[in-house]
Write a protein that binds this DNA or RNA. Structure first.
Lengths: 197, 197
DNA sequence: CGTGCCGTTGAGCGTTGTCAACCAGTGTGG
DNA sequence: CCACACTGGTTGACAACGCTCAACGGCACG
């Protein structure tokens, strides 16, 4: 992904949609379909986006000829898995307000890593409906919890723009531990510097 | 894993535990820690288990010298990710009874794939407490939903032994689609035949 | 000036959590 | 062999959380 905001999701027979991952610039969306043969979920955009297409052969050449690139792609995949695990903890065990706060903290770090956060704010193009499908709660409830976070002075969300007033306070509230993002490896891999190229 | 039943989990500050994956014989538990550097979650057993230890060098040799093994390990990792996504859908979007049924369907297939299911039954060593931490619900609620599934004639769970009376009916009820397990690749990769060696 | 999407609000209900008690099975020590 | 403790499963009562339904408001777009 070069620009925009996308997601992985599944649709259930009853029409519900569960969003399982957010894709922001710098993320890969389809690195390994070839190995699994069949896609088991869908990908869609949540904002106008720009995606770069790399032929499979290119990837195969790069990974086989450059061990460091191979390693970096592995790293990216494993971080995705780590994020997925944390999301499972999020919907499985955290109250909705903490869950939401946690997601904001994560997104801030991920966007900072690719230079898309300004200060403590960033663009947040999702509708409350889409946000609800991510958190596993109804739109109405998203709205109410959002208002609570605003009332507590933790965030501002207005016109697709999110601002975090006190990052430390929000992290504290969300019990956010960034270790699962493995950002310390960041400087050593090409992944987060992609946008600079 | 050679024998037994284990899981990946995280503990939250309030003492809650979220189980994020079940590990059954044939699964790998630590294939890639080296790449991420730091473990972001814990692994524990849910029944007496036997684990095989492979030195990192062995893995590196095998993967670099045998493309097919390399590919198989990729496959295993990607299937794990697929399962994780489905679990997220499960706790995020499905009612607790369907969620439970879905998990039973998945486990049946996974255990069948490694020859550990007899007919439509298998050993299920978890306590209701541990099961609740997997489903993201309380122990009491696990108990009640379990009774409902029994009353509906879908399953029997008695003394660590689970029997599914009508697999098709349970799958139907759970809206279970096994595609995310990518079992069609099974015969072509060394992973599911591990137990045979 | 309509139309439609998105956000907001209120009321009522269903699901699930909590708390507390009790029961059954098992293992241990007297 | 029995008393006891411990663990895991079961039950009831009640409260809290989150969902549904339905209506309304603001804003952008044509």
């Amino acid at each position: 992904m070069i620009e925009g905001f996308a997601c992985r999701y599944k649709l259930l027979p009853n029409g519900e949609r569960q969003i399982m991952a957010w894709l922001v610039p710098g993320d890969f969306c389809d690195l390994h379909v070839a190995i699994l043969g069949e896609m088991d979920h869908a990908i869609g955009t949540l904002a106008p986006s720009k995606i770069a297409y790399l032929p499979r052969v290119t990837i195969e050449e790069l990974t086989s000829m450059h061990p460091s690139i191979n390693r970096a792609l592995w790293w990216a995949t494993l971080v995705d898995e780590g994020v997925l695990r944390e999301w499972l903890v999020n919907v499985g065990s955290r109250s909705v307000d903490k869950r939401m706060a946690h997601l904001f903290c994560e997104l801030l770090l991920r966007l900072q890593a690719v230079g898309l956060a300004t200060g403590n704010g960033f663009d947040f193009p999702l509708t409350q409906d889409e946000f609800g499908d991510t958190l596993g709660v109804s739109t109405v409830h998203v709205n109410r919890v959002l208002q609570q976070l605003r009332a507590d002075g933790l965030i501002t969300l207005k016109g697709k723009r999110l601002t975090i007033h006190d990052v430390a306070a929000l992290q504290e509230f969300a019990e956010f531990n960034p270790n699962y993002l493995h950002l310390k490896n960041e400087a050593r891999t090409p992944y987060p510097t992609l946008k600079a190229s």
